[in-house]
Write a protein that binds this DNA or RNA. Structure first.
Length: 285
DNA sequence: CACTTGACCTGTCCGC
DNA sequence: TGCGGACAGGTCAAGT
């Protein structure tokens, strides 16, 4: 999503903002008027699951889409993609019932950025760019798993922070490693043949090293595939991600394990729906 | 303290 | 067909 927005938004100027749900965008109209209206986008960044849209006012929109949030860019009157272009039909006319905020933009042509969020869990917030790193959520975030300097050694060290938890709960903990959600936890644990409910400190170093490799492979593969659309996720132009067509266990309960043919089952671990091959992922606790 | 569970929301799906 | 309940890709506060 960041990659898509980074192609569209820079050099666009905010012409207006329409917000229909205060919890989605709690900033006061005064702040919006002073620091967002008239500001020009300079960059789109990501840290963990958080998106940041920077402006030349030295303010940024910090955005968390949670589970059902979307950020969709549309040129006005559908001019950008043209009638009949597939991007125009993937999600219907916007705004729709899930639209919470609309940023009206001036770029090479007038455009809008729609923040849609069916479950209203997501949020966006305007704040000084320099302050982003000091909000609690960002301070606690663990390292980026795909960063060049994120090594096996640092992975093992980070895991030490929660020795007694189920390994899946540790992977989902954003303060241990940033950005891993339910899909990628299940997929990487299957790839490494580790049971998600295994206590962290009962897993061998060899297995954890394998997990490191598989987790990075799964994340990279998903980025290459444009993400994972279960039902709500779309990228900046409204396209769904195709990673789930490559998923081995996620949402595949009742189907055969691609490695051994055993039936995949769905269980509950760390309060989350969890998918495993019961033959290859044996509990170690 | 370390860790787990429920709340926040709306829409969908499944079983009766 | 209608209805209740479980559940959903996340995170925080409150609980054990």
């Amino acid at each position: 999503m960041r990659r898509g927005l980074a192609e569209y938004l820079p050099k666009h100027t905010v012409r207006g903002v329409v917000s229909s749900y205060d919890k989605s965008f709690p900033n006061s109209p005064t702040d919006v008027e002073r620091f967002l209206i008239g500001a020009q986008c300079t960059a789109v960044r990501r840290r963990g699951k958080v998106l940041m849209i920077d402006f030349d006012s030295l303010y940024s929109l910090v955005i968390h889409l949670k589970m059902t949030g979307q950020l969709v860019y549309r040129a006005e009157a559908g001019a950008r993609f043209g009638a009949g272009h597939p991007n125009n039909s993937l999600i219907g006319e916007l705004p729709d019932a899930s639209t919470r905020v609309v940023l009206e933009l001036n770029g090479s042509q007038p455009a809008k950025l729609f923040f849609n969020d069916q479950r209203r869990f997501g949020w966006m917030r305007l704040m000084p760019t320099i302050q982003i790193d000091s909000i609690d959520f960002m301070k606690k975030l663990g390292p980026e798993p795909l960063a060049a300097d994120f090594t096996v050694a640092s992975f093992l060290e980070r895991l030490e922070r929660r020795p007694k938890s189920a390994i899946k709960a540790v992977l989902l903990d954003q303060s241990v490693i940033a950005g891993v959600g339910n899909i990628y936890a299940d997929e990487s644990l299957w790839a490494a043949k580790i049971h998600p409910a295994s206590r962290n400190d009962s897993i061998t170093t060899t297995q954890k090293k394998r997990l490191f490799t598989e987790l990075r492979a799964v994340l990279q593969m998903s980025i290459d595939q444009g993400g994972s659309s279960d039902r709500n996720y779309v990228d900046a132009s409204g396209r769904r991600g195709s990673y789930l067509t490559f998923a081995n266990v996620f949402r595949r309960q009742g189907l055969a394990c691609p490695r051994c043919g055993q039936e995949i089952v769905k269980i509950r671990v760390a309060g989350r729906g969890t998918h495993i091959c019961p033959r290859e992922q044996r509990i170690a606790s």
